[in-house]
Design a binder for these strands. Sequence first.
DNA 1: CGGTTTTGACCGGCGC
DNA 2: GCGCCGGTCAAAACCG
Length: 351
Amino acid sequence: MKEETARENFPPHNMLKNIVRNGGDELSQQNPAKRARVSVRVRCDTPTMNDGCQWRKYGQKIAKGNPCPRAYYRCTVAPSSPVRKQVQRCADDMSILIITYEITHNHPLPVSATAMASTTSAAASMLMTGSSTARSSGTTSSSTLSTTNSIKAILPSEFIAFVFPSFPTITLNLTSNSASSARLGNFPPRYSTINLNFSSLESNALPISWSNGVLSYGNPPYNKNQTGSLSFGSHPQETLYQSYLQKNLNPTQQSLPPDTIAAATKAITSDPSFQSASIIGCATASTSGNQTVGTYFVGQYYQLLQNQPDFVHQFYSDASTMLRIDSNTREIATAMLVIYMKSLVKIARVQ
DNA sequence: CGGTTTTGACCGGCGC
DNA sequence: GCGCCGGTCAAAACCG
């Protein structure tokens, strides 16, 4: 609720003027209403989280409704970088940092910063393209989405059950810990479900196979929660989508085919009983040799319809693993975000 | 000494 | 029109 206030006023309407005054031109070429923001929640004890990028603090404010000050940072990796971020502790849980990124980096980043940056920029670009796509579909829910231009990604190191109060607030909760799996077990989806896991990918992706409604990306190398599979629930209508996917996926393709997103999107938006989705996202990064290693989280999103007059939306994390981040996994993270967002569009439509 | 942080002032938008 | 509020500026302080 308190973050809501902050979101509505970020970025400020006078930002363009200031950017122009400062000689910047990146922002002035964009419609401010179209600038995407990606908000990340991190369970973090330190004042700020190291996301691998260089930031300079340029202001601090006490925002209404939150005793914790909000800090304002600019990216200093490149002199003319338009990227800014806000950092504030969650009033409800002081151990959670809410980091809001605005504008994707238009310059090279340190390798340690690529994971977060690629995830947030993927989310942002997906929002842009997703909003226009959604708008063309002519649904009221998608127009709501297009005016929001905001994703909240929640990336705590441990499980958080998060409830977001109302649309168009979009919360992407990419949580991870083992306890959540147990919680997940107590909370099985009661509706038709779409699960998408691509957690086993390496740079030389293994061939995709399909059997019994399960699309596999090689062998699952980590644990049983990360099956490396794309599986659809048991709703009768989904048979159509399965065959659709089967037809449109090239088993020898090494990167996620664009059709996969379209197919999954179609499946989600066509299924009136769809109520939940699994997603995967990239959360953190470190450098190992000359490669970036990131933590990928797999989670399950639920919409709790029954006995929930206010339409409660929750997300439960499922599993995590360490993966090398390459163009392939980035693409998948993007795809997962697209699918997740599409699911929200669908849910909003049902609502 | 150069870069960063701190902090009060300032500005513009918005609601009443 | 006025006050509130969020965001930014910029000078001073701080720091390695």
